[in-house]
Design a protein around this nucleic acid. Structure first.
Lengths: 201, 201
DNA sequence: CCACATCTGTAGTGAACACTACATATCTGG
DNA sequence: CCAGATATGTAGTGTTCACTACAGATGTGG
């Protein structure tokens, strides 16, 4: 098998730059010109490597969720359901206001509503958010089995709740909420999980 | 002052149609062609009446918040902070899955991230969401003064929390969550407000 | 009925969009 | 060193976008 000319850019480094553009401007708001400039390449290189704009988004999402996956593993490793929620929401408050990244969450900023021809982009993002929710749900199922959560609690509803708060915090972060404001939201939100924990009346 | 030819369409009816297009496709995803077709008018009529695309969005947002303002007044009229939160979040679960409208909330679907040239659209939406948050905060300040909320509670943080949950529910609704799923989220979320209410330990 | 002002429909405007043809450059296998 | 394969840079492609010029229609005030 012949190899041909090797590519002159690093795909992962370029993806990091593309990720940031999608993060800041959304899928539809990001233009190929902005993306190629940020990635330091020309359009033909982009298309040869990622197929098209949507393929680039998916590759960026893969990278994003892969980076976040390690963190999510740490989150669900917390000893109790309450601690899982706290670690998750406090971590999100910090991450979404990290000046190293655009504010908010790529899985939300990427595009909640899109025009005709990009209808599957919101679904793509929703599917990735659902993965986190599933991971939380599994953790809460275990917490209930361990007697950590009340027998009357609904692990799926709790996971959906934590996921909803995360998304809401992301939107707030992108519209200017600072770290302290998000931490206060997280602090209140954790109390709902606490109310579902055993050992409380 | 001369009057000229009167316009042949009703501005508010046309705005309702435009609202739905922005709601479903977002600001950038909505095209003038889609908007004019939904409104039943031609581009020159649109521009004569609303200035430009962003002017049309603002007019649609004005109408949206005006319609929702009446409902928000009912929400904050609830007797306790807990009931305010419940009425708000349960109502949102219903509204955001009302088949008469696109799923989710226009103030979120309209555009969380936008491309260059529309940067102020997300700010515009955020400002309108902040109005609801302010109304909630004022209500919670009153609840604290009345001894309904604990002396240690933070009304601003509580309002921000309820607002964040609302936004998160909106995103979930737009990605397919059904009414029952949203009600479960609301049910859990209310417990955090309950935990801040007086008469609980 | 006339001067004027405003609206409406047709038919476009230039600009920006995602994407690509093509020639050239740089690699591997023989 | 050559043939085939893949990457790159230049310079476009057609399409769609928000927006508008213009002419005709329909109203008001005198």
């Amino acid at each position: 098998m012949r190899m041909g000319r090797p590519r002159e850019f690093d795909a992962e480094t370029a993806l990091d730059q593309a990720m940031e553009v999608f993060w800041r401007h959304g899928y539809e708001g990001a233009t190929i010109a902005q993306l190629t400039e940020a990635m330091g390449i020309n359009p033909p290189s982009l298309y040869a490597c990622f197929g098209n704009k949507e393929g680039l988004l998916k590759a960026a999402l893969d990278r994003y969720t892969k980076l976040r996956g390690a963190w999510m593993d740490e989150v669900v490793a917390a000893p109790t359901a309450r601690d899982v929620a706290e670690r998750m929401l406090m971590g999100i408050a910090d991450k979404q206001t990290d000046p190293a990244n655009p504010p908010g969450c790529l899985l939300v900023q990427g595009g909640i509503a899109c025009g005709s021809g990009s209808e599957n982009v919101p679904f793509e993002l929703a599917a990735r958010r659902a993965q986190n929710e599933d991971q939380l749900r599994d953790r809460f199922v275990r917490a209930k089995a361990e007697g950590d959560l009340k027998p009357t609690s609904d692990p799926a509803a709790l996971a959906r709740y934590v996921s909803a708060v995360s998304v809401g915090m992301g939107v707030m972060a992108s519209s200017g909420a600072d770290r302290e404001a998000l931490r206060q939201v997280a602090d209140v939100a954790v109390q709902a999980v606490e109310a579902q924990s055993a050992g409380r009346t």
